[in-house]
C-alpha cells in the first residue's frame, strides 16, 4: 500500500500531502507520524496541505488526532497552507479544528515551531538558575 512520505528537518517532521487521500492512507499517515515522533524524538510536526483541494470530516479528524497525539508526546503540530475554499468549507461543515495550530506556509510554520522550542529552552535555562 502507498504511504505518504515523512521528511525530517532538524527536530521537526514535515509531511506534504499531495494526493487526494483515501481513508486508509489517512489512517496510515496518522500511525506513521505517531511512531516517527517518538523514534525521531521530534518536537514539531508540519503538515503541508496546500495541494489538497478537499478536506472532509475524515481528514479533518485525522489532523485533529495527530495534533492531540503529538501534544501528548510533547511535539507541536502545525497545519500549513490550507486553501481559502477548503477553509470556508470546513467552517461550514462545522469543523473548526480548534486544537490544531495553523500557519500560512511551511516557512511560517517552521518559525512557529522554532519559536516554541526557543521559548521552552529559555524556560529550561531559567529552571537551572
Amino acid at each position: 500500500m502507498d504511504r505518504i512520505p515523512i521528511l525530517k528537518f532538524g527536530n521537526a517532521l514535515l509531511v506534504t500531502i499531495q494526493v487526494d487521500m483515501h481513508d486508509r492512507l489517512a489512517t496510515a499517515l496518522e500511525e506513521d507520524l505517531t511512531s516517527r515522533i517518538v523514534s525521531n524524538n521530534a518536537r514539531g510536526v508540519l503538515i503541508d496541505i496546500s495541494a489538497l483541494e478537499v478536506v472532509d470530516s475524515f481528514i479533518g479528524r485525522m489532523l485533529d488526532n495527530i495534533a492531540a497525539v503529538s501534544r501528548i508526546l510533547d511535539a507541536d503540530t502545525v497545519v500549513v497552507g490550507m486553501r481559502p475554499a477548503v477553509a470556508i468549507t470546513l467552517v461550514e461543515l462545522g469543523l473548526s479544528l480548534t486544537g490544531v495550530k495553523t500557519a500560512l506556509n511551511v516557512e511560517r510554520g517552521m518559525a512557529m515551531i522554532h519559536d516554541r522550542l526557543a521559548g521552552s529552552e529559555a524556560d529550561d535555562a531559567d529552571d537551572e538558575d
Partner: peptide
Amino acid sequence: GLVDQTKVVTAASELAR
C-alpha cells in the same frame, strides 16, 4: 465557483463514506 465546487465535493465525500 471554486468555493461551491469545494463544498459540493466535500458533501459528496461525506455521503459516499
